[in-house]
Design a protein around this nucleic acid. Structure first.
Lengths: 150, 150
DNA sequence: AATAATTAAGACAAAAATGTCCGATTTAAT
DNA sequence: ATTAAATCGGACATTTTTGTCTTAATTATT
């Protein structure tokens, strides 16, 4: 319990990185292969594959099977897809809608002990996830103002 | 990956609930036994014991061993202890200081792809954890305006 | 001193998350 | 058609988190 690093699961962090990299290529109308994605985001190949499959099933990116295959996002999709959809596809809505103490039903009329403290934070997170598009991340990474590796 | 509910680990949620309940009793200068805590917060007895031990070691609550024993927090402690300390004791600082994409070094000069989006959320979370005392939670629960069970 | 009631601590078990492997499927190129 | 290069999908393995059990240590009561 010494390394629960932040808001998203590890899988979700990988998913966000992977989607962003596919998005960066999508800005130039290019597809990318699994191998390149995994290398670029420093994530194990087979595990990256699993995560990409989930993104494909969630209709966030598309896959091209067979030789010359790979993964792809259209520029239109890049604009449409928000981070909320990626996070939802991997971690479920719990990460931005769940009760901090784990209650099924936690709301203003039956609030958990942390409800009123955590609510504004959750709201801000949700708002940020909704208002940030995959294109936003992809462009910043494309311009080298932000990074997918350390 | 369908139930990662929110900001804290399950252990940490239990810890926050347990500490709050011990705190509620502390407001009346009473100690509580493990059994009552576990029942009150709906957490398995033995697991609750483990979590309480961590809180004791982190000097957040104190334990009274032997017959007539239990767990206790003084009113002074209740005022001093912030949620940040409880969260730190169980989840480490990752939950409020960690990089959203899991990088060791992520900062304004080498920002991850989500850095600028997540920074304000993390800051708000940290601020909230620092500015909320265990007493705050304990009082609200004592007044039945918030709850530790659903 | 003996007993009963309690927490402490460490070994163990189960479940969930993370990660690997391999064969099946799809497609492009020859 | 055959082959090579890719993704797909399911079984398997590992690691981390969550949870249990048992014994030891401590203390109040008798």
């Amino acid at each position: 319990m010494i390394n629960k690093s932040g808001i998203f699961s590890k899988s979700c962090s990988h998913a966000l990185k992977a989607a962003t990299f596919v998005g960066k290529k999508g800005l130039e109308n290019k597809s990318v292969k699994l191998k390149e994605i995994a290398e670029e985001i420093n994530s194990p190949l087979a595990f990256t594959a699993k995560i990409l499959q989930k993104l494909v099933k969630a209709n966030i990116i598309e896959s091209i099977r067979g030789a010359k295959g790979g993964f792809f996002v259209s520029q239109e999709k890049l604009r449409q897809i928000s981070l909320k959809e990626i996070v939802f596809a991997i971690d479920g809505e719990g990460s931005y809608n769940g009760c901090a103490l784990g209650f099924e039903k936690c709301n203003a009329s039956k609030p958990c002990a942390l409800h009123f403290q955590i609510l504004p934070i959750r709201e801000k997170l949700k708002e940020t996830l909704i208002n940030t598009s995959l294109e936003d991340l992809a462009r910043a990474v494309g311009e080298n103002t932000t990074f997918l590796k350390e």
